[in-house]
Design a protein around this nucleic acid. Sequence first.
DNA 1: CACGTAACCTGAAAT
DNA 2: GATTTCAGGTTACGT
Lengths: 207, 207
Amino acid sequence: MQINHWLSPPISAAAAKIHLSKEALFEKPLTPSDVGKLNRLVIPKQHAERYFPLNGGGGEKGLLLGFEDEAGKSWRFRYSYWNSSQSYVLTKGWSRFVKEKRLDAGDIVVFARHPDDLGRLFIGWRRRGGQEAAAPPPPNSGGWSGLLYPAHSHVDIHGKERNRNSKRLRLFGVNLEWDEEEPTSGSIEEPFLEYYSSHCPTGHTAS
Amino acid sequence: MQINHWLSPPISAAAAKIHLSKEALFEKPLTPSDVGKLNRLVIPKQHAERYFPLNGGGGEKGLLLGFEDEAGKSWRFRYSYWNSSQSYVLTKGWSRFVKEKRLDAGDIVVFARHPDDLGRLFIGWRRRGGQEAAAPPPPNSGGWSGLLYPAHSHVDIHGKERNRNSKRLRLFGVNLEWDEEEPTSGSIEEPFLEYYSSHCPTGHTAS
DNA sequence: CACGTAACCTGAAAT
DNA sequence: GATTTCAGGTTACGT
């Protein structure tokens, strides 16, 4: 069963904002092309236009987007719109990210931003679902050194990525979403932190 | 056995200059990309910077280089530096040359200049090596209506192209280099002229 | 709007 | 082992 890691159960958005450092934007399950020789990541149009708008003036040659990963490492990607395929893509720099993180088709890339500085972007990832609950994650099985909360009220509601067994709760104008099945025992935060931070070089663990 | 056509045996540079009309600069064995759909010829950096320097002032958008072929026909190519690949290229005009000369991968393009007018450039070519010594060259098997001598004293001394069985002689400040094995019978000039000029429409043959 | 070509990008290989 | 080179790709754009 897939755990939706950043949509933790009964935490209010305000409470989350206090000790969570990232605002989730969207996820992209990687296609074979996303991790293959095309050296590009297609960003679903609805997310691209909502969070990374290219309003013409943004530059016909696209722009450079800077992200931080779970270790605080900086990643800069060229972001542009391809008329030929009518799609938004990350190009230059993307293949290096795929290689360093050993990403494969089915793995999921997570985009987020700083709640108080919307220009500060983060990129995370996790291994493709199916094994997390069945076995302890191997080292480097996922990346992000912090908690997340959703940025808006309709995360993938219409997308294929939405977990149809999840539950939603609207608090303080923000919808929260989480999985009901197979709740983790004990603290709701520890497994998440354990999972995401076990290999984090900056030491942001749940201790 | 490949004949090094412009590095003829015991001819002094001065003698050569009297009746040879071209100063050899360098050769480029054509890659599949050089003759393919990329419509560009990559000029090895060492040769580009030595003979076709683009000193910034040459124009960030490159410059137009004019050459004469074996028939005296004028060819103009756009010559520029690609920052992305850190390489010097001939672009505009190149594909027409490839098509007219029927150049294929492995064929060799030869660059030369006028000894007394260094701004006068020549471009020649020959079919890929391996058959010249084994069989008489077919019509249109190579192009250049003149003799060549090396432009400088260290042609590929450190490169892979240098024939390790060749001999060198320094005369008048110019190193000459030639193969000792399998010397051509008779005149040292006739095979060269025969080979390069057999199809020359202007009739500059060895007659 | 299809085609030709300029410019950009990357991986592999050489150094 | 980091850097440079360049062959082989890509997209973008002008005609």
